[in-house]
């Protein structure tokens, strides 16, 4: 089994935004992996490893579409335990979502991968669409917003608990397939691969890289491709024409007692 995991680098979401010239200035930003992609790699590693054994059930490849300088974020995932990396080197400002999706689909085909695991959302531009697009381009089934995944190795299928608006939907998808992961995929018992004891509880959240992992990551191969190597023309059918800060909420007030709060809600805001 071959699992391809997406990693997108984003400006640190804890930094405050700098508005400049009708856009956002990221020139001084610290770049970090998108949180949902950290969840994606954690999911892949839980599927691939057998806790208590040495056997590996899958090869895990991390893929980033963007400038070659994102190698650092890719290396972070290699240090967590991924086997190798691929960068498709392209200027992110010249790539639209459709093209990013085509590039990921092209790598999936080139690698003859069985499973793509991506985040459900980029924290910066919040498209929420790349994994679904890739599934459409590959014409394979998709399980979006995954909170749990169970791998049925014999049937070559995944049973996925998807967080939908009114509850959790259970969807079974045959491989090859695309899964996008939601927050709760990194709870201790969200991922089951059929080989690690089902009772095993993982740490909560994505794992930290070990010292050994960090040393080994430097020796793991990272291939750098150009969009043209994949036969994908870089186009742009969408364009950002302005960015502005949202209107601020007007300053509120502190109340000292519950009675005062009640008074304000009934007489001033008139909402009760």
């Amino acid at each position: 089994m071959k699992i391809l995991v997406c990693v997108k680098r984003i400006p640190d979401p804890d930094e405050s935004l700098k508005f400049a010239g009708g856009g956002l200035d990221y020139s001084a930003s610290k770049w970090v992996p998108n949180a949902f992609d950290e969840y994606a790699i954690e999911t892949a590693l839980r599927l691939a490893e057998v806790v208590g054994g040495t056997q590996r059930l899958a090869e895990v490849i991390v893929l980033g579409i963007g400038p070659e300088s994102q190698r650092q974020q890719l290396t972070q995932f290699l240090a967590m335990g991924a086997d190798r990396g691929i960068i498709v080197d392209a200027d992110p400002d010249k790539l639209d979502t459709a093209t990013v999706s085509k590039l990921i689909a092209a790598v999936f085909k080139k690698e003859a991968a069985d499973l793509l695991i991506a985040g459900k959302l980029s924290q910066d531009n919040e498209g929420g669409q790349v994994p679904q697009r890739v599934a459409g381009l590959l014409d394979v089934p998709q399980a979006s917003f995954a909170a749990t995944v169970e791998w049925d190795q014999a049937a070559k299928a995944l049973t996925v608990g998807r967080e939908v608006d009114d509850g959790v939907e259970v969807k079974r998808v045959p491989l090859p397939a695309v899964v996008s992961v939601d927050l709760r995929i990194v709870l201790p018992k969200s991922v089951k691969n059929g080989s690690t004891p089902a009772t095993h509880a993982y740490q909560e959240g994505p794992r930290l890289a070990s010292l050994k992992g960090i040393t080994m990551a430097k020796r793991k191969p990272v291939a750098v491709l150009k969009p043209s190597d994949l036969g994908v023309a870089v186009g742009t059918n969408e364009q950002v024409v302005g960015v502005a800060a949202p209107p601020a909420r007007k300053a509120g007030q502190k109340v000292k007692t519950v009675e005062e709060l009640f008074e304000k809600l009934t007489k001033e805001a008139k909402v009760i």
């Binding site: 919040e126 679904q132 998709q142 979006s144 939908v164 969408e238």
Partner: peptide, 21 residues
């Protein structure tokens, strides 16, 4: 959650952009 799941897939097949939210 329904249209966020289905529409990007359809958009990709038609090679069309999708403006979300």
């Amino acid at each position: 959650s329904t249209l966020r799941d289905a529409l990007p897939r359809a958009a990709a097949v038609l090679d069309a952009p999708l403006v979300s939210e």
